[in-house]
Amino acid sequence: MARRKGLVINDRQLDRCDDLLQKLKEVSGSSFLALISTSGQPITTASDEYHPETLSLASLAASSFAATQQLAKILDENEFTLLFHEGKALNLHVSQVTDQVLLIVTFGRETQVGKVRLYTQRAIEVLRQIFDGPEDENTPAMDAGFEAAAGTAMDDLFKDM
């Protein structure tokens, strides 16, 4: 059966992303960062104490960003490359890394928006190289028995329902 190819992240990419997010968090003064896919799935996060519910956050941020892109089209703007929400205590900044990846940054009122935007933009340039670079030959393949094992796991989870 033909198989679809999705977004595949290998060890090296994730290590580089984690290092970069950690540095970005420190230099920008942000409290929580997450890389997510444009279809709303989390890739990795960086935070110290603040841990929002990542699955819902990724889903909502990706959907909001996609809606923002459509707003741009309706307004005859080429693209809106970021989404910004200003709160009483916390701000949310979502920006596009590649066609398949978004970066979420949250930061408090004490942190300057300009500083976050500047360092985020620089980080995105490096992140693009990580995701758009040539495919790593060391990226592993799915275990051949995954499909059968997943089927069994599903039968177990849904039994008696």
Binding site: R4, G6, L7, N10
Partner: peptide
């Protein structure tokens, strides 16, 4: 498309 994160040992599908 699925997100396959070999590093984090995660796979995510959208239905």
């Amino acid at each position: 498309m699925p997100l396959i994160n070999f590093a984090a040992r995660e796979i995510n599908y959208k239905i």
